[in-house]
Design a protein around this nucleic acid. Structure first.
Lengths: 185, 185
DNA sequence: ATCTTGATTTAACACCGTTAAGGAGTCAAG
DNA sequence: CTTGACTCCTTAACGGTGTTAAATCAAGAT
C-alpha cells in the first residue's frame, strides 16, 4: 500500500536551498557542500539530481530571468521598458543576482527555434517582426544585466555613487534605448 | 659590485602571465598556482606583489577597460559610439573577457572625485556637463558589458545565433541608445 | 527469497586560495 | 668585519572546493 516514498530531493528543492544559501552567504560561499548541508544530505547526493554546479547555477539564473517575463503593455515600447524594469528588480532581488547571471550558462532548451519563438512572442504580439523583436529584447536584456553588474560592483558603486543617481540614470538609459529604436535611421 | 638583482616578479609580469594563462586555459582554470608555475615560481610568491586573487583579477579587468579608453570623435555621440565599439572589441579580444570583468572589482583609486572627473573628461570636452557625461557613459558601458556577456554565453549564443546577427544587433542597440539620448523628452 | 532500480552514503582524488615560518641575498650602519 | 634590517622567494600546511567511484539501503517486482 505504501507507495514508494517521495524522494527527499528534487531539482526544485535544490534551487530553493541554493537561493537560501545565496541569500545568507553570498555567491562566493555558495558551495555544493553547503547547499547539501542545508538539505541535511551529503554533497554527492546532489549529483543525482543535477549534473554539476554549473547546471545548478544555470537553473538559478533561469529562475531570475523568467521571473521578469510577465509584462503587461500596450505597445512594444512599453513592453521593453517594463521588461527592463522587471529584470533589474529581479536581479537586484537576489543577493549577487547579477554576478550569478553573468557566471551562469542557463541550459538552452532542446529546440532552439521554439525557444526563440517563445522569447519573441510578446513583442511579436505587439507588432514587431520576429527578428526585430529578438534583437531589441537582446539589447534591453544586455543593458539591464550590464547595469546590474555595474551597479553591484562595490568599489565602482562607492566612487560613482556620490555623483550619480543609479535609479535615475538607469531609467534615462532605458528610455533612451527604447526611444532610440523608434528614431528613423 | 653586483647591484641588487632585479626582482623576478612585478605586478606587470603577473598580469601578463595571468592573461597568457587565461588565453590558454580559460577563466575557470585560471588559478594562482598556474600563474605562478608559468613564472617559474611558487604560488605564495605572488602574494608579495598582489594582495590576493581578487586584486589580480581587478588589475586584469582594469587593463581590459582602459584599452578602450582612447577614442577620437567630433561630438559626444561619436565618442560614445566609438567607446562602445572599442570596449566590445576589448572584451572580445580576451578569452572570457566579459566574465572576467563581471566577476572582478577593479580597485577604485584613492580619490573618488578625481577619478570621476577623469572618466567624464572626454565627454565634458565635447560639451556635456559632468553628471550627464557620467550617466551616459555608464549606460554605454553597461550595455556593452551586458552584450558581451550575453554573446559569450555558449548555449544562448547557439540557440539565438541562427536567427540573430550579433554584430548588426549590437550596432543597432548601440545606435539606438546613443541617438535616444538626443531625443527630446 | 531474489533481483532490480532509485537514491543516498562513505571515502577519496586532485585541486584551490591563502597564511605562517623561514631562508637566502643585498644593503646600510656601527 | 659584523650586525641588523629589508626584500623577495620557498617549503609546509590549513581548510576548503567540485567531483567521481564504490558501497549501501530501502522498496517494488518477479
Amino acid at each position: 500500500m505504501a507507495t514508494r516514498p517521495a524522494p527527499a530531493l528534487d531539482r526544485e528543492r535544490l534551487t530553493t536551498a541554493a537561493f537560501a544559501e545565496l541569500a545568507e552567504a553570498g555567491i562566493d560561499k555558495l558551495s555544493m557542500r553547503r547547499v547539501a548541508a542545508r538539505l541535511d544530505v551529503q554533497a554527492p547526493a546532489l549529483y543525482w539530481h543535477v549534473a554539476g554546479k554549473d547546471e545548478l547555477l544555470g537553473l538559478m539564473a533561469a529562475e531570475i530571468y523568467s521571473s521578469a517575463e510577465a509584462v503587461a503593455a500596450a505597445d512594444w515600447q512599453g513592453w521593453l521598458t517594463g521588461f527592463g524594469r522587471g529584470l533589474r528588480a529581479s536581479l537586484a532581488g537576489h543577493r549577487d543576482g547579477a554576478r550569478l547571471c553573468a557566471a551562469a550558462r542557463p541550459k538552452a532548451g532542446a529546440d532552439a527555434a521554439r525557444n526563440a519563438e517563445r522569447i519573441a512572442a510578446p513583442l511579436v504580439a505587439l507588432g514587431l517582426d520576429r527578428d526585430t523583436a529578438l534583437s531589441r529584447r537582446a539589447s534591453v536584456t544586455s543593458f539591464t544585466l550590464g547595469w546590474a553588474i555595474f551597479e553591484a560592483n562595490g568599489p565602482m558603486h562607492d566612487f560613482l555613487g556620490q555623483m550619480l543617481d543609479f535609479d535615475a540614470s538607469f531609467e534615462a538609459g532605458l528610455a533612451a534605448l527604447v526611444q532610440g529604436f523608434a528614431v528613423p535611421r
